[in-house]
Design a protein around this nucleic acid. Structure first.
Lengths: 180, 180
DNA sequence: CCCTCCATGTAACTGGTTACATGATTTC
DNA sequence: GAAATCATGTAACCAGTTACATGGAGGG
């Protein structure tokens, strides 16, 4: 997608909470944020430089051990303004959910197609695993059902769990009908 | 996404049903397939050329009126093989659902944030509209609840309707809690 | 004759992935 | 001392968007 840099806002959003290195930001996509977005370090480092050029962030050097200097980035007030503006803007797009399985399914015209059942069971397993993972995340991050100072994260997890629950149920339903 | 060309398979899939021009394929993304995928003609035309170079499709010229020649593309048997192989392959990725609203929500930490309620109501309206549209599509395309020779399309519509139903209910639930 | 739709292309640019490349620190 | 992890970058490439560009056919 050659769209308006959304990664930019993720970085600003993360830095608005605390100071982070490029490496920390990269890591964030393996955990929390990885649940619904992805990015590689090769994309992050150049973007950090660009954001600093635009004065939305700055960095200070921190010495680790003898030689290793890491760059601790923090958001500037200009950066905070840009972030807040983005949050305030309307979000009128409903992304086209590019799910490859759904795409394949579109080209399965008949219930008799021998590919159908294997496809369905594979996806069911995947989404079941994802659901389990999400539920674990939920009980790890929000053990006492209070969303504390992290309402957004709580809601997103809740949303994802509902989505995967619905997805697996849908698949199960088709499996039942097809294999009957 | 710089991933394995999925558009390629969409084109092969569409051509496996009937002969189409580049224009027809472009149009397909405004209706049926547009429900879950998007593509521009500027991406389609060069790809058609590439697929023809790879002998997965061919074209014949058809004269319209006096001068206008349109290219009617059809799939070759090599193309059919490639399509079938793609359908047979596992689909082990769960795409990261890049939903900008979800992203924004992640950075809303408190229920007191004045941006929260407007965001929620905006999204509720959008997804409600989408749901209505999908239901219309369903009754237009499958008026008598039989999925005929188009099982895949039927299932995808069903899935999308369930997804949007779930999405709007989730939003409504948060709205109720926040505005209470 | 004008407007809409049919029809096909190219160019410039941005976003994102994969691969290349290097070196320090920590842990076992 | 070896392996895993921390830490930062660049280069090549592919996917996808926006804009540029052209012209015929059909309907009113």
């Amino acid at each position: 997608m050659a769209q308006r840099n959304q990664l930019k806002y993720i970085i600003l959003g993360l830095l608005s909470e605390k100071k982070l290195t490029g490496y920390d930001i990269t890591k964030a996509f393996d955990s929390d944020i990885g649940e619904f977005w992805s990015a590689n370090h090769s994309q992050i480092y150049p973007l950090l430089k660009r954001l600093e050029d635009d004065a939305l962030i700055t960095h200070e050097l921190e010495l680790v051990g003898e030689k290793l200097e890491k760059k601790l980035y923090s958001i500037t007030s200009a950066g905070k303004t840009v972030l807040r503006e983005w949050l305030s803007e309307p979000t009128p797009e409903i992304s086209a959910t590019k799910d490859e399985f759904i795409l394949k399914l579109y080209f399965i015209h008949s219930a008799d197609d021998p590919l159908l059942l294997p496809m369905l069971t594979e996806q069911h397993q995947l989404h079941q695993a994802k659901l389990t993972h999400l539920k674990n995340q939920m009980s790890r991050k929000f053990p006492d059902e209070t969303s504390q100072n992290n309402l957004g994260h709580f809601l997103i997890l809740q949303h994802a769990i509902q989505r995967e629950t619905r997805y697996t149920a849908w698949l199960q339903d088709i499996i039942d009908k097809v294999s009957r």
